[in-house]
Amino acid sequence: MKKKYIYFLTIFVLVIFFNYFENTYIIYKYNHHLRLINNYGFCHETSYGFIKYLDKKFNFEKNIKIINDETHPSSDTFIHKPGVSYYKDYLILLNYNENDSKINLENFDIIEKNKNCFYLKKND
Rank of each mutant, 00 (worst) to 15 (best):
Met1Val: 14
Met1Glu: 15
Lys2Val: 09
Lys2Phe: 06
Lys3Arg: 02
Lys3Cys: 15
Tyr5Cys: 06
Ile6Leu: 09
Tyr7Gly: 07
Phe8Trp: 01
Phe8Ile: 15
Leu9Asp: 03
Thr10Cys: 10
Phe12Ala: 02
Val13Lys: 05
Val13Ile: 11
Leu14Ile: 14
Val15Ser: 14
Phe17Glu: 11
Glu22Ser: 14
Asn23Gln: 03
Thr24Gln: 12
Lys29Pro: 02
Lys29Thr: 09
His32Leu: 09
His33Pro: 00
Leu34Asn: 02
Ile37His: 02
Tyr40Asn: 00
Phe42Asn: 10
Cys43Glu: 04
His44Cys: 13
Ser47Phe: 03
Tyr48Asp: 06
Gly49Thr: 01
Ile51Thr: 04
Lys52Ala: 05
Lys52Glu: 11
Lys52Thr: 06
Leu54Pro: 03
Lys62His: 11
Lys65Pro: 13
Ile66Trp: 00
Ile67Trp: 08
Asn68Pro: 07
Glu70Met: 15
Glu70Trp: 15
His72Glu: 04
Pro73Asn: 13
Pro73Asp: 10
Ser74Gly: 14
Ser75Gln: 06
His80Trp: 15
Lys81Pro: 02
Lys81Gln: 07
Pro82Tyr: 14
Lys88Pro: 07
Asp89Asn: 15
Ile92Leu: 00
Leu94Gly: 11
Leu94His: 09
Leu94Ala: 02
Asn97Thr: 02
Asn97Ser: 05
Glu98Phe: 09
Asn99Lys: 09
Asn99Leu: 09
Asp100Arg: 13
Asp100Met: 04
Asp100Pro: 00
Lys102Ser: 14
Lys102His: 07
Ile103Leu: 05
Leu105Glu: 02
Glu106Ser: 12
Glu106Tyr: 15
Glu106Ala: 12
Glu106Lys: 10
Ile110Asp: 07
Ile110Pro: 04
Ile111Met: 09
Ile111Asn: 00
Asn114Cys: 01
Asn116Met: 13
Asn116His: 08
Tyr119His: 11
Tyr119Leu: 07
Tyr119Arg: 00
Tyr119Trp: 07
